[in-house]
Design a protein around this nucleic acid. Structure first.
Lengths: 132, 132
DNA sequence: AATAAGGTGAGAATCGTTCTCATGACATCG
DNA sequence: CGATGTCATGAGAACGATTCTCACCTTATT
């Protein structure tokens, strides 16, 4: 249990707090650079990793495999509806789905069930932008 | 629309037909090598890519980001319950979940919805094996 | 201040995947 | 049967995200 509060970690957390949407480690690094906070890329990765382990941030994989990070409002288990264009995110929960998932898995004799349930789409703003 | 049927592509398809579980491109390459079919790794990737585009194989991302491929029995939309240890796969469908997903997305004004719903677990055999 | 336990960062190293490009296989045309 | 155009192949280079290395700083703690 490390977790020393350093300038760099503080910067990463603050950046996450200000950005509402899912961002990649590299985007965050770029953001920090742009605002003058000098933080190494490796450090950004390490900070995000630590935060993810502590459940301080949510991680999900973009369709191309890149990991995206976000500081979610709710700490409890939930899922996301993410705009694949701008990263805009809506937190959703689905008790129905949770129940369905564990029932199905148990029926097949599987243990240690985890599920990946994410919704991707185009948000209203991005649709308007591309249609306009 | 290419799709010339070559020795290599045939070999990849046959290997997939014999393997019931999700496999990575590298695993397939290794399998082919082992049985004496000489096929380049790049070719395996290309064949899998073409098959995936033609919806001949299903692709999903392992938890570590690696792509896994499988020739599924049903061509229609469905999901999977996959053993994270041996790749053993059960095809599942969830009309409930489909309905839920599109309802939620529409309620938020999102378009072009796609969803990722996969279940990961430890199958009975792998549990028995690790339990001794 | 001294020190121990971490943290940092530049660049090297990984690893899956894709690209390059010279060569090979095929079907068609003559 | 051989020439031709087209696509496929494969060895290795290139890529891109992520992780590791390691010498050097920071942050608590005494």
């Amino acid at each position: 249990m490390a977790a020393r509060m350093t300038r760099q970690r503080t910067a990463v957390v603050e950046a996450l707090d200000e950005l509402a949407d899912f961002r990649s480690a590299q985007q965050l690094h770029e953001t920090l650079r742009a605002r003058g906070e000098s933080v190494g890329l490796a450090t950004v990765y390490r900070a995000l990793q630590a935060l993810a382990e502590a459940s301080e941030v949510d991680v999900l994989r973009a369709e191309d495999g890149e990991s995206l990070y976000r500081r979610c409002a709710r700490r409890e288990h939930h899922h996301h509806l993410v705009c694949r264009h701008c990263g805009r995110t809506v937190e959703i929960d689905g008790p129905t789905v949770e129940a369905w998932a564990s029932k199905v898995a148990a029926a097949q004799g599987f243990d240690d069930i985890e599920h990946t349930i994410e919704l991707w789409g185009t948000c209203a703003d991005c649709r308007a932008a591309s249609a306009g």
